[in-house]
Design a protein around this nucleic acid. Structure first.
Length: 658
DNA sequence: TTAGGGTTAG
């Protein structure tokens, strides 16, 4: 399997499925799914074939004059028509020159040129390991892991594919783009193929643990592995570990790594201090934070923008808003408040502490000062307004963001969705979903949850159902409360099969379920006449279901369920020591009376009853005797019935004696 | 010695 398939295969399509109209849909309407736009053959160069037609000789053979090279590099960098310029100066430049130009474009974030140049380099076989490494790195920065994977798969040389720099770049690219699982799979394959991972490899993977749910234990596994390989942790690895601890709310572990690092003779730098400071911010421990900053200053380090911003975070988390404001003023004075981050920290802290009006004032101040914004401030304020019940204001701010900003990510899209769902603005909800699809941003658990809740609120139960189906298909954990209420609503609105499907998704995705759900499901299926499904629910969950629900099911089943399973229903009742209501036997007998071809089953039931001490009631007995000629087993039936009759008389007299 | 790793916001 190639890296692309390995990394992409385990992921669902990057597009969103939410293109369906919100209005009530026909029941057999298929949920549309768009095929991912990226094709495997797209952009994949064929180096070998194009090299054959290339007339140039390898650049390394040609002695190059360095000033000519410098001029050519400048020409390419300034070119408005890359391909023709590159062809014109071909033969002057060497591989490292192309690499330099690649980095030049990359640092300027000129992604079109980066890709164009790299394509050209591939076609003309002007690349080495650092070309791949750099290109892959830039594809990671530009959020294009697909192109990075394609470039990696296009490497013709097997030994180059396990070059540690290239591997590190690719792993870093995946990690940066939130594909930790893929990066671990790829890492294992790379090792199988002969990669010798180094400290950079491990710190790359470790940095992916930061945003993971149980990131700390994953990090520990990696640390164990690097130590088993005889590698020793360096300052960067410690930095990553401290960041991981801070992100996972593990303050004590962070302190202990900080100490361990110092004990090993590695003096902490600004990265280490800021990570530990960040760990203190979790519970707003400003006493420890201030002491740490003082220690840091004593060691000769000067607090930078990150340190001071993180200290601001500690103050806001600790509820020290006066100190926070003073520190924000200091940051402004030092020129460290040119972007929105410190304002965001304080705004979020204020809003979460219930000071929404102060947060709004700060947001206004920030706008008035023309502070650069990437949308975080809007996101924070929209969320804060929605949380605080100021739904209309939240919607207005969401509209304002969409009108003025064109930068979207998943969190922002979710925030907008929530704002529009809260105010019942269906058109805007659908527009946001369309945007998501266009930008190929995959919905996450939150997206699904917001939508399903909203569709339920709007009584669009079938749409909610299809969204749950999609959510489940993408491997997201389902929310039990939401599913339970949807199951009932689907049942009440004429979609019992869909209700059962939600029930099954829930059952197979969660280990423990609220016990009451089974009875609700059973009632619903019985009411809808879906007795085959009801039978399954009954059999697997009898212990959680009330007698009255079971009886209702059994009577219905005797009347119109699968006749071949009738006896199994009795056995199931018996196995779980549930009393069998005589009405159920009566219903079974009358069902069998209408089906003489099922005599064997009737006989089996009667014999089973005798063995386990059950008797048919007198009216059923009379009915059976009167019709026993129909079954061609007159004698046998009479014998069984008389045995049952005697037994029941014996039992009754025993009870009287007692 | 042309390449790859760690810090702050929703």
């Amino acid at each position: 399997m190639d890296a692309f398939a390995l990394a992409v295969g385990c992921h669902s399509s990057p597009t969103t499925p939410f293109q369906s109209p919100p209005s009530p849909l026909p029941r057999n309407h298929r949920y549309p799914r768009r095929i991912p736009a990226v094709s495997k053959t797209l952009d994949k160069p064929h180096a070998s074939t194009s090299a054959a037609s290339s007339s140039s000789s390898p650049a390394t053979i040609r002695p190059s004059n360095s000033s000519a090279r410098r001029i050519a590099i400048a020409e390419v960098e300034a070119s408005t028509d890359l391909d023709s310029t590159l062809s014109r100066v071909e033969g002057i430049l060497q591989v490292q020159d192309y690499n330099n130009i690649l980095c030049y474009f990359g640092e300027l974030r000129r992604w079109t040129e980066v890709s164009q140049l790299f394509d050209w380099m591939q076609r003309h076989e002007k690349l080495n390991f650092s070309s791949y490494s750099s290109f892959i790195k830039y594809m990671g920065i530009s959020h294009n892991p697909m192109k990075a994977l394609q470039a990696y798969d296009s490497i013709p040389d097997k030994s180059l594919k396990v070059n540690v720099s290239i591997c590190n770049s690719l792993l870093g690219c995946l990690v940066k783009n939130g594909r930790f699982e893929s990066s671990i799979k790829l890492f294992n394959q790379m090792k199988d193929d002969g990669l010798s991972p180094d400290l950079v490899t491990y710190s790359t993977l470790l940095s992916g643990c930061r945003k993971l749910k149980n990131g700390y234990s994953k990090a520990m596994q990696l640390v164990q592995e690097l130590e088993n390989k005889g590698l020793h942790m360096d300052g960067v690895i410690y930095g990553t570990l401290l960041a991981t601890c801070a992100s996972n709310n593990l303050c004590e572990e962070a302190e202990s790594y900080f100490q361990q690092m110092k004990d090993e003779g590695c003096p902490p730098n600004l990265f280490h201090y800021s990570s530990l400071l960040n760990a203190y911010s979790v519970d707003g421990n400003y006493v420890k934070a201030e002491k740490l900053v003082n220690d840091m200053k004593s060691s000769g380090l000067v607090p930078n923008k990150v340190i001071l911003t993180t200290l601001l975070k500690v103050y806001t988390r600790g509820g020290l808003f006066e100190k926070s404001k003073e520190l924000l003023a200091e940051l402004e004075f030092l020129g460290y408040a040119e972007d929105e981050m410190p304002y965001c920290l304080l705004m979020d802290g204020l809003a979460k502490a219930g000071h929404i009006h102060e947060a709004k004032a700060l947001f206004a101040e920030m706008k008035q000062k023309h502070v650069k914004s990437d949308g975080y401030a809007h996101s924070i304020m929209i969320s804060a307004l929605c949380r605080g019940g100021l739904l209309k204001e939240g919607r207005i701010l969401a509209k304002e963001f969409e009108a003025n900003c064109n930068k979207y990510d998943l969190v922002m899209l979710n925030t907008l969705l929530r704002a529009y769902c809260n105010t019942g603005d269906m058109d805007s909800v659908m527009q946001v979903l369309g945007k998501m699809d266009k930008l190929a941003i995959s919905p996450d658990w939150n997206t699904f949850h917001i939508l399903i809740k909203y569709f339920c609120k709007e009584k669009l139960y079938h749409l909610a159902y299809r969204t749950i189906e999609d959510m489940h298909g993408r491997g997201h954990q389902l929310n039990e409360d939401l599913c339970s209420s949807l199951i009932l609503q689907l049942g009440q609105s004429g979609f019992p099969s869909e209700a059962f499907s939600v029930y099954n998704m829930l059952r197979y995705s969660k280990r423990t379920l609220c016990k009451s759900i089974h009875e609700k499901m059973l009632d619903l299926l019985v009411a809808a006449g879906l007795l085959k499904d009801a039978y399954v629910v009954m059999k697997d969950n009898m212990e959680w279901i009330s007698t009255s629900s079971l009886d209702k099911f059994a009577v219905s089943f005797m009347r119109s369920g699968n006749i071949n399973l009738i006896n199994d229903v009795f056995k199931a009742f018996h196995r779980s020591r549930r009393q069998i209501n005589p009405d159920i036997f009566r219903a079974a007998v009358s069902r069998y009376l209408g089906k003489p071809e099922k005599t064997q089953l009737l006989l089996q039931l009667l014999q089973w009853m005798s063995r386990h001490g059950y008797c048919v009631d007198s009216s059923s007995r009379n009915l059976l005797l009167k019709n026993s000629h129909l079954f061609g087993q007159k004698q046998l039936i009479a014998e069984i019935l008389s045995k049952q009759h005697m037994m029941s008389r014996k039992l009754r007299s025993q009870e009287v004696k007692k």
